[in-house]
Simulated scan of single mutants.
Amino acid sequence: MTTQLTHLNEQGQANMVDVTDKHVTTREARAVGYIEMSELALTLIQQGEHKKGDVFAIARIAGIQAAKKCSDLIPLCHPLMLTKINVDFEIDENKRRVYVHTLCKLAGQTGVEMEALTACSVACLTLYDMCKAVDKHMRIGGIEVIAKSGGKSGDWQK
């Protein structure tokens, strides 16, 4: 079975996919990732005692802004009129991780997986930036799409 990469034309050159004839449908994508950190860094975040302020509020805003700017960052992404962006955090004290959960949604002709992934990535990077003075050994990982809906290929969940 051969899979054709949609971002390449017949000559193998980079190509923005033409979505003109695709139907407008409600499309949604969810992504998740995590940042692993020291117990001290996690405690400071949880107790709101980080000297840089509300770390989660800043990371949430950064993730939302990143989703909105995805087409400026990823060369062949379409600029999209997103109608909903969520960035939420879940703390796992045992693994010393903060999980970042993102959701992007719109009514449009193309999917929003890249926007959800970009929001998750930038929120994790922002957590890193906010906490690096306390912990220089943080690790970001596990960033992936976990669900999508809408469009010709239908619904999918990991």
Rank of each mutant, 00 (worst) to 15 (best):
M138F: 15
M114L: 11
G53V: 07
D18M: 15
H78A: 09
K69R: 07
Q4Y: 10
C120A: 13
E10I: 02
E49N: 10
S149P: 07
H137F: 10
Q47M: 14
R27L: 14
E49S: 01
S121M: 06
H23S: 10
N9H: 08
V87F: 00
E90L: 12
V32E: 13
A67W: 03
T2L: 11
L127V: 05
E10N: 02
F89I: 09
Y128E: 07
M1R: 07
N94G: 03
E93L: 10
L76V: 08
E49F: 11
I85Q: 00
A57R: 13
T6Y: 08
V98P: 00
G108H: 05
G48H: 05
P75M: 08
A123P: 01
D54R: 10
E28K: 04
K52I: 09
K132T: 09
V100T: 09
H23G: 09
S38V: 15
K136L: 12
L106Y: 02
V32P: 09
R96L: 12
L103R: 02
L42D: 03
A133D: 15
I45H: 02
N9I: 11
A123D: 00
C124A: 07
K148R: 15
C120I: 00
L127H: 02
G151V: 05
F89A: 00
C124T: 00
E90F: 07
G141A: 14
A59R: 01
A41E: 10
A133Y: 11
A123V: 12
H7T: 09
C70N: 13
A147E: 07
K69G: 03
T6C: 08
A29N: 05
A67I: 06
Y99P: 04
V32M: 15
V100C: 03
M37N: 06
L73V: 15
D92G: 04
A67Q: 01
V145G: 04
G53N: 13
I146Q: 06
T102H: 00
K22V: 13
K22I: 11
I146S: 03
K148L: 08
